[in-house]
Write a protein that binds this DNA or RNA. Structure first.
Lengths: 276, 276
DNA sequence: AAGTATTGTGATTAAATGAGTGAATAGCTG
DNA sequence: CAGCTATTCACTCATTTAATCACAATACTT
């Protein structure tokens, strides 16, 4: 974790938090040298000197920088904690206002009614998928079957949710792709049945050019499922999690998954039937 | 609080939270009708139909919307709480990363040393000023004299900070511009001496074209001060709080303020000397 | 005191991003 | 297959942001 990458990361994060490039660079430059003139900042930040003044003014109005009106002017960054708290509370406040504004919206009466079965929704992004997973776990009343295809999926939060489901008398079964992961999870959830899924194609795709990796597979009360996978195929190289989510006992996708899951469970209890 | 304004506000807030205009409008449209096609969204949101798809894709990747890949596609917004939490946690996470990145910066060794007295810093914006006020109050060991020029300044948080200072045996004096405000504050802080400042020019400027209003005036341990004011003069009409902050017993600004404050206090205890 | 370097402000240009529009493609319905 | 709708893609226009320049104001040097 060298300093250069830290600096660049800080600049990037500041921009994501709403600052412009010059503002972010100026702030980082100032943050690491306590105080400085426009010239100083310009030199350590690559920001044109003549633009430092604008940037600082914005930073000042956001409460991140203080100015000494001498000649030359001297600028100073507030402490890191203060800066982060300021930025953070700004967003938390906005989020709170948003909650109110959205809550106060009167719904349009149109388009409410559609049959609630046979639906398949696609979601993407780790956030949304994790959130939907939680919802399904919390909503389950009888049974949860969860297959975890990658260790990164199994977080402490997830374990917590599963424990809480068990306390509501939901039967929880957890499948994994290999023995190593199985042990890890069994340790975290001693009261749960954790098995290595008999479904070989889960871990290694039978297709040649398939760099998709199953990341989770959840069946809740045998009537709602969620399947998600990682794909490498992205322009920027980063992995992206995509998923589908289906509900309804007679939903085709749910039905198929139910079968597959049952097979995976069976094969574990009764190896002879593996090729069913 | 009618619906239209709520909707506009929600759109604006979503944009401030990083969404583009189309994304914000599409989301709000979806949020109020539970589910809908691109056409539906376009109609209730003023977003060109052909661009709804882009917007939704972004929303989906942020975990705010789910897609049903039928024809036509049907989109659905996640619950309001879920959406807000998702957005909020996104920013909280970023802020946390920022804290690490900034904390890991190695300081440049230049420009550290300057004399620590005689300094006057200017700050602007409610946030920064409130934050600096808090710092001064928390750092005081002996005495705090605070004059409050506008009721909006006196928040529960501020009262809390003052109470906590008193528990550390700091002498707290609070001045106000009129009797009404005095009563309010006295009620909130029964153990504090709250007086109406004898300084007339605080409440109404002796100058003609002066629409500046003193908002707070703080003297901490007689060696650090903070003065802030509201100015109406802004292009967009909104009020803006500006302030100065000085430290050092021999700092000229601090010295003058110390005198003024003492006068204000004196005149209260001893009305005869009011015109000193 | 005059000349030179430095500092701050404003105007101007160039590049990037986002909003808005229409054409082309794909898919469905009868 | 014809005619419709839904979807994607590419392009223009407007706005925003980055970058450069010219100049006025201020300090510093000799």
């Amino acid at each position: 974790m060298d300093d250069v990458s830290n600096q660049d990361q800080a600049i990037e994060l500041l921009q994501q938090l709403g600052l412009k490039e010059y503002e972010a660079k100026s702030f980082v430059a100032l943050a690491r040298r306590q105080r400085g003139t426009a010239k100083d900042i310009s030199e350590t930040s690559e920001v044109p000197r003549t633009r430092v003044y604008d940037a600082i003014r914005v930073l000042e109005s956001k409460g991140l920088v203080e100015t000494q009106h001498s000649n030359p002017q001297v600028f100073r960054a507030v402490s890191i904690d203060e800066a982060v708290n300021t930025l953070q509370s700004e967003y938390v406040e906005r989020a709170e206002s948003l909650r109110n504004a959205l809550g106060g919206l009167e719904p349009t009466d149109e388009g409410e009614s559609t049959e609630t079965t046979h639906e398949v929704w696609s979601i993407s992004g780790d956030q949304g998928i994790t959130s939907r997973t939680r919802q399904l776990i919390e909503g389950a009343t009888e049974e949860l079957i969860l297959v975890i295809g990658h260790e990164s999926i199994f977080t402490e939060q997830l374990a917590e949710q599963l424990r809480s489901a068990q306390e509501r008398d939901v039967n929880v079964f957890i499948g994994t792709v290999d023995e190593k992961l199985r042990t890890t999870i069994q340790d975290a959830l001693p009261d749960t049945e954790v098995f290595v899924s008999g479904l070989d194609w889960l871990s290694r795709s039978p297709l040649p050019d398939d760099d998709t990796e199953i990341s989770r597979l959840l069946l809740a009360d045998r009537e709602a499922i969620l399947i998600s996978s990682f794909t490498e195929t992205r322009a920027d190289g980063r992995e992206h999690e995509q998923g589908v989510f289906g509900r309804g006992f007679d939903n085709g996708l749910v039905a198929i998954t139910r079968r597959l899951m049952a097979t995976g469970l069976l094969s574990m209890n009764d190896p002879e039937t593996e090729e069913t």
